[in-house]
Structure formats: C-alpha cells, structure tokens
C-alpha cells in the first residue's frame, strides 16, 4: 500500500514537472510566434517545420555559451540566484488539482500531488518567495544596474502581494476553504468563481502579471533604463534559468487562475453528458490545460500590446488603486454574503 502510494505520487510529480517544463519550453516559441503575428512578421521558422525545434536549438545554444562570473561577484550567491528562481517557479504546481480522481482497477488515483488544507496560502507563500532569486542574483552580480533591478523587483513584489492577498481573502469568504481541491470541486459544472468574484479576479490577474514580472510590469529588467536589469551580468544557462523561470511562473500562475476563478477541471454540462467518470475526468483535465493555454496567450497578448509602466505609475496603481479596490471588494463580498 505504502509503496504503491509512493510510486503513484512519484509518477505524478515527474509528469507535472515534465509537463511544466515542456509547456514553458514551447511558451518561448509561442511568445515569438505571437509577437510575430501581432507585428505582422513570420517569426522563427528555420529550425524544423514551422520552427518547432527552435526551443531545442535555443537551449543547446544556451548550454554551449561561455559562462562568465564577474570577478568581484559573490560566487556562491551568483549561482544560488538563478537556481532559486527556478526552484520557486517549479514549487507552486504541487497543490494544483489537475483533475478529478481517476479510477483504475477499483483504486482511486488522485490527480493532485498533495492536498494540504492550506493550499491557497501555500501558493501565496511560494509566490512571495519567488522574488528572492531575483534579489540574490541582482545583488551578487556586484553591478549597479543589477542592484537597481533587484531593488525594483523587491518593492514591486511587496506592493502587489498585498493587493493579491486581499483579493484572495475575498475569494476565501466565498469558498470558505483554503484547500485547492475543495475550491475546484465547489465550482462543479458552470458555478465558476469568476461569476461571484469578477472584481477579485481582475485584481488577482493584474497582481499575477506583476508577480511574474511580465510586461507592463517588467521594470526589474527594463532594458531602456537598466540595460538588462537583474540579469545584466548573467550569461549562458544561468541567464537561461532566469528566462525559463519566468515562463514556468507564467504557466503556474495561469494554472492557479484557472483553478481559482475559472472552474479548474470543471466544464459546463459535465454531469449531464452521461459519460463514465474516467472519461469526464480526462475531458476535464484537457479542459484545464486549454484554459491554461488561453491564459498564457493572454499574457503574451498583453505583453505585445501594452507599453511598460513608469515606476511612479506602477506604485500608484499598486497602492492607491488596487489595494483600496481590493478592500472595497472584501466589504462588498461581506455585505452580499450576509444578505443572502
């Protein structure tokens, strides 16, 4: 029993890890293709059919580049930075329910790595930890521009975390649970949380953009002001880790948004189709991935549409708009909940 459990979880963890890496890998390709589409260009089309092998070529290039560690840099922390960025990016997917329970040979197999009863807070914690990779790397480079990037990342992260936490509180009042599995199960069919928390979702979405350092919130790596921001001094695969961590972050936050607000693995009329439970589960999992891919596309769409904020605009939006809105959302949710 115990061994079977461990093997089952091991397979699940490996699969989730592999899928996150695969999606992140092809997100880099999709990013360039979407950019090309929006700017009326062709995009990468040399490596393989439609340029599909481009991510592999990029990876190989990254590995073969010369690795430079600045002479005055703090060597250990210089390596710890990108490793930490990658680690925290991969940690978030542990509590996301990828589907309902599969039933194989009378045995229930959960499609969630672990269902801790503070799952929502766990994700919030991992997100708040993500900034350390950027900060440590930026400081260890011993470069003024890198330091500026690191400091910007920290202040941005702290500012938007507050609004994100407040929007999660409003969601919590509706769901009444912190467990990701229960939150997903509550949205069965078409009872998605987006209909009960539209404002909360909007705040969460904006904060997710800020926490993943995506445009319009990519001030830590703002090349017009800071050369390359926190990764100015990085080369070879260490730079690759930073860039790659951003895409994994994007994937995980898309999965979180899909689970929290867009029903997770649930889809409309799932209980009226008359299929067996396993088929419904598989369709649901596919549905979840379609939702995630839509969110990733949205991330890219915004990146190539909206210009970057100025720093004071960023702070004003965070502190003077999003936080009061989130508090108003909590009050509103409380009033509606006490009336109904």
């Amino acid at each position: 029993m115990e061994t079977a459990f461990i093997i089952e979880k091991f397979i699940l963890v490996t699969a989730v890890f592999a899928i996150s890496l695969l999606i992140a890998m092809y997100s880099t390709y999709a990013e360039r293709k979407v950019a090309a589409f929006l700017q009326d260009r062709v995009g990468p089309n040399r490596a393989g059919p439609f340029g599909l092998l481009q991510p592999l070529a990029d990876g190989a290039k990254m590995f073969f580049k010369e690795e430079i560690i600045p002479a005055q840099a703090s060597k250990i922390l210089f390596i710890v930075g990108p490793s930490l960025a990658m680690l925290t990016a991969c940690m978030g997917s542990a509590v996301i329910p990828w589907g309902q329970d599969l039933e194989i040979a009378g045995k229930k197999i959960s499609l969630q790595v672990t269902d801790i009863n503070v799952g929502l807070l766990y994700i919030f914690g991992v997100v708040s930890l993500g900034v350390f990779g950027v900060m440590i790397g930026g400081w260890a480079s011993n470069n003024k521009y890198s330091l500026m990037g690191a400091i910007r990342a920290a202040s941005q992260n702290i500012s938007y975390e507050i609004a994100m936490g407040l929007s999660i509180i409003a969601l919590l009042m509706v769901t009444g649970t912190l467990s990701m599995k229960e939150i997903a199960a509550q949205q069965s069919g078409f009872h998605w949380n987006i209909f009960y928390q539209p404002l909360g979702f909007l705040i969460f979405l904006i904060c997710a953009f800020a926490e993943t350092n995506r445009t319009p919130f990519d001030l830590p790596e703002c090349e017009t002001e800071l050369i390359g921001g926190y990764h100015t001094e990085y080369s070879s695969m260490k730079l690759g880790f930073y860039l790659f961590a951003e895409y994994i972050n994007m994937f995980v936050s898309s999965a979180v948004m899909a689970t929290l607000y867009f029903g997770g693995y649930n889809f409309p009329f799932m209980n009226d189709l008359g299929f067996s439970a396993n088929v419904i589960t598989i369709i649901g999992t596919v549905g979840l991935f379609i939702k995630i891919i839509c969110f990733i596309f949205f991330f890219m769409w915004v990146r190539w549409t909206i210009p970057r904020f100025r720093y004071d605009q960023l702070m004003n939006l965070g502190w003077k708009v999003l936080i009061p809105l989130a508090i108003a959302n909590i009050v509103l949710t409380g009033v509606v909940l006490s009336l109904t």
């Binding site: 801790i116 009863n117 503070v118 807070l121 766990y122 919030f124 914690g125 997100v127 708040s128 930890l129 900034v131 350390f132 900060m135 400081w139 330091l147 690191a150 400091i151 920290a154 202040s155 992260n157 702290i158 975390e161």
Partner: peptide, 28 residues
Amino acid sequence: AQFLAIVNFIVYMGAIMVLFLFVIMLLN
C-alpha cells in the same frame, strides 16, 4: 501546525525578510 507554518513562511520569509533585504541592499 500547518497554518502557523505557512503563515510563518509568508509573513516572515516572504514579506518581512524581503523588506529587510530591500533596505540593506538599498543602503548597500
């Protein structure tokens, strides 16, 4: 104590320590 653990994780590691690091890096 899962709740205490995760709150310690968020508040101390995620928020207060980021602020500490921020101030110390800013003063350099």
